[in-house]
C-alpha cells in the first residue's frame, strides 16, 4: 500500500539540566497538549500512539506506563512503546499508518537523565559478557571514536571545537536548547574529547503527530511528507567496526531515498562533535547543506528524545517553509551503533 504520511505537528520542552520538580508525566504532558492543540485533535481522534523511553535513565521501573496517564488512555487506546529513542517509535507509527490501520498517530518520547549517573547508566546497554563488566562510559567510547578519526586525518581538535561552537551559536535561535551561545570548550573529559565536545546532560520531552494523505493536508498548512525512513545497525562489537565510518547510516539513507536528490537541511543526531564528522562523510553532505540549524544534540540531548527531536526540527523547518527537502537522523548505542534516517519534503511552493 502506498500512502503518503506526514509529520503535521511537533513540540518539545525546554531542555534543562534537571526537572526534579516534575514527575515524568508532569514533564511530558505540556508537549502532548501542544501537538494536540496545533492540530485541533483530541486523544480520541488519534488512531495510534507510540512512545519511546528507558526506565534505566531515572531508575524508575515501568515509568512508561505512568507516562501514559498524560495521554488519557481510557477508554483503552491502540498504543505501543519502544525502549528506544522516540525516532524508533515514529518508525513504528509510520509503518502502522502505511498499513492503513490508522490515519493519525501520536508519537512521544522523554528522558530524565538528571536523577542518575548517565555516563554509567549507558554502560548497561553494552555487551554484557565482554564490555559491560569494564564499565566504559559513554564519553570514553566516543573518545575512542574521536581518536580514530584524528589518527585517520579526518579531523583534529580545532575542527571538533568548531563543530561545537557552530552548534551552540545556532542554538541561540532555539529557545528550547540547554546550551546556547558561546560555551567554553573546557578541559578534557576523556581525551581527546573536551567538555565542549560532549552534549549537555539534561531532561526533556518531545512529541509529533503523523497523519496520512488528505488528513495531513487538513491538519497542517504545509505537511512534512515522509518520503522514506530506514534504520540499520552495526556489528555490536566495537573492535569489529571501522569507527571512522558509518556504513549503517549510509545504507539507511540509501534505503530512505536520501541520495536520490540533494537535501537542503540535515538534522543530525550527533551527541559528540566527532560523530558529526562521521555522519557528514557517511551521508555525503556538502557545505551547501544546512546542518543542525537547531543546534543539534550538542545544544540539547535529552536521551531517548533527542533523535525524535531531530525529525521534529527538520519537519518544523518544512512546516515554516524554511526547507523543501530535509534529512533527519537519529542514533542509538555507542559510537553511532544504530542509525535511522528519514527524508522529509514539503509540497512545491
Amino acid at each position: 500500500m502506498n500512502r503518503e504520511i506526514a509529520v503535521v505537528a511537533f513540540a518539545q520542552t525546554d531542555h534543562r539540566r534537571t526537572s526534579e520538580e516534575l514527575s515524568e508525566v508532569e514533564m511530558l504532558m505540556p508537549v502532548l497538549h501542544d501537538v494536540l492543540g496545533q492540530t485541533g485533535l483530541k486523544t480520541a481522534d488519534i488512531g495510534f500512539t507510540c512512545s519511546g523511553s528507558s526506565d534505566y535513565l531515572a531508575g524508575r521501573a515501568f515509568s512508561f506506563t505512568l507516562a501514559l496517564d498524560g495521554v488519557g488512555a481510557w477508554p483503552p487506546i491502540s498504543e505501543s512503546h519502544v525502549e528506544m529513542d522516540g525516532a524508533w517509535a515514529l518508525y513504528e507509527a509510520w509503518t502502522k499508518l502505511l498499513t492503513g490501520d490508522a490515519d493519525t498517530a501520536l508519537v512521544y518520547s522523554y528522558g530524565k537523565s538528571s536523577p542518575g549517573p548517565l555516563r554509567d547508566v549507558l554502560t548497561r546497554q553494552l555487551d554484557p559478557y565482554y564490555v559491560a563488566p569494564l564499565w566504559p562510559d559513554s564519553v570514553a567510547l566516543a573518545a575512542l571514536q574521536a581518536q580514530a578519526l584524528i589518527d585517520a586525518g579526518d579531523t583534529d581538535e580545532p575542527a571538533l571545537a568548531a563543530v561545537a561552537a557552530r552548534s551552540r551559536a545556532d542554538a541561540t535561535a532555539n529557545s528550547h536548547a540547554q546550551l546556547r551561545g558561546p560555551v567554553p570548550h573546557g578541559e578534557y573529559v576523556v581525551r581527546p574529547l573536551r567538555t565542549g565536545d560532549c552534549p549537555p546532560i539534561g531532561d526533556g520531552a518531545a512529541a509529533v503527530i503523523l497523519a496520512a494523505g488528505e488528513r495531513a493536508r487538513n491538519l497542517c498548512a504545509r505537511p512534512a511528507w515522509i518520503r522514506g525512513v530506514d534504520h540499520r545497525i552495526e556489528a555490536h562489537s566495537l573492535g569489529v567496526r571501522d569507527l571512522t565510518d558509518s556504513p549503517s547510516t549510509r545504507l539507511a539513507a540509501e534505503k530512505a531515498g536520501a541520495f536520490e536528490r540533494p537535501v537542503d537541511t540535515a538534522e543530525l543526531h550527533a551527541p559528540f562533535t566527532s560523530q558529526e564528522v562521521v555522519l557528514r562523510k557517511a551521508l555525503k553532505l556538502d557545505d551547501g547543506v544546512r546542518v543542525n540549524p537547531s543546534g543539534g544534540a550538542l545544544a540539547a540531548n535529552p536521551v531517548m528524545a533527542a533523535g525524535l527531536i531531530r525529525i521534529g526540527e527538520a519537519a518544523a523547518r518544512v512546516h515554516r517553509g524554511e526547507s523543501d527537502r530535509a534529512l533527519a537522523h537519529a542514533t542509538s548505542g555507542p559510537c553511532l551503533q544504530q542509525n535511522l534516517v528519514a527524508v522529509l519534503e514539503g509540497d512545491p511552493r
Binding site: S23, V25, M29, T43, L68, D69
Partner: peptide
C-alpha cells in the same frame, strides 16, 4: 500522580 489518566 499529577495527571488524570482518563482525561490526560
Amino acid at each position: 500522580r499529577g495527571a488524570c489518566p482518563t482525561c490526560g
